[in-house]
């Protein structure tokens, strides 16, 4: 198994930390992982992205320009990365603020309204975990048990009291992905 993922959105949306939790979950599952951030002059409000690769075998290049999955959290990133999904691949996007929706017919497109859901849950900061939960529901690349271990590993100890809240968000993401429809 090898899964090449790009996660892209605004800086401050938790793009890099979502990638880190995913990567740590892979480590907990005994997989090879790489996490390669765009570390440019991005800042809060600018764009941020990270390439995460999870694999049963050793990873040659941590940098790839085509992805099995794109997790997209804003319009700029959708414009940039829709075309980078491999044919037959998966694109998940948050509908919040999206005016030009994805149009490709040769990939599987899902929408998760995580921003709206996070507001409903009164837990805006766990928005990225809702998205992660949605992704994991569609592609169970890592077991939930290992995701929780990964979460624990990647959060500093002083934030460990937030783990139940994050877990709830991950599970909710898995639930609401049922409610969304494949975009025609």
């Amino acid at each position: 198994m090898k899964e090449e993922i790009i996660i892209a959105g605004f800086g401050g949306q938790g793009v890099l930390s979502m990638g880190k939790i995913l990567a740590y979950s892979g480590v907990m599952q005994g997989m090879e992982v790489s996490w390669m951030p765009s570390y440019g002059p991005e800042m809060r409000g600018g764009t941020a992205n990270v390439i995460v690769i999870l694999s049963d075998e050793s990873i040659s290049s941590p940098i790839v320009h085509e992805f099995d999955t794109a997790i997209i959290l804003n319009q700029q990133s959708l414009d940039k990365f829709e075309k980078a999904v491999k044919p037959g691949g998966l694109l998940i996007y948050d509908g919040n603020g999206i005016t030009h929706h994805p149009t490709r017919k040769d990939i599987n497109i899902y929408r998760v309204d995580a921003t709206a859901e996070a507001v409903k849950m009164k837990s805006v900061k766990t928005f990225n975990m809702i998205v992660l939960g949605a992704y994991l529901k569609l592609k169970g690349v890592v077991e939930m048990e290992n995701v929780l271990k990964g979460l624990k590993k990647s959060l500093p100890e002083r934030h460990h009291h937030l783990i139940p809240m994050n877990e709830k968000a991950i599970l909710r993401g898995g639930e609401i992905i049922q409610e969304i429809s494949v975009v025609e």
């Binding site: 090879e32 390669m36 570390y39 941590p62």
Partner: peptide, 10 residues
Amino acid sequence: DGVIGQMMEK
């Protein structure tokens, strides 16, 4: 370089 410095691996 920036790739090896910034990326995370096991």
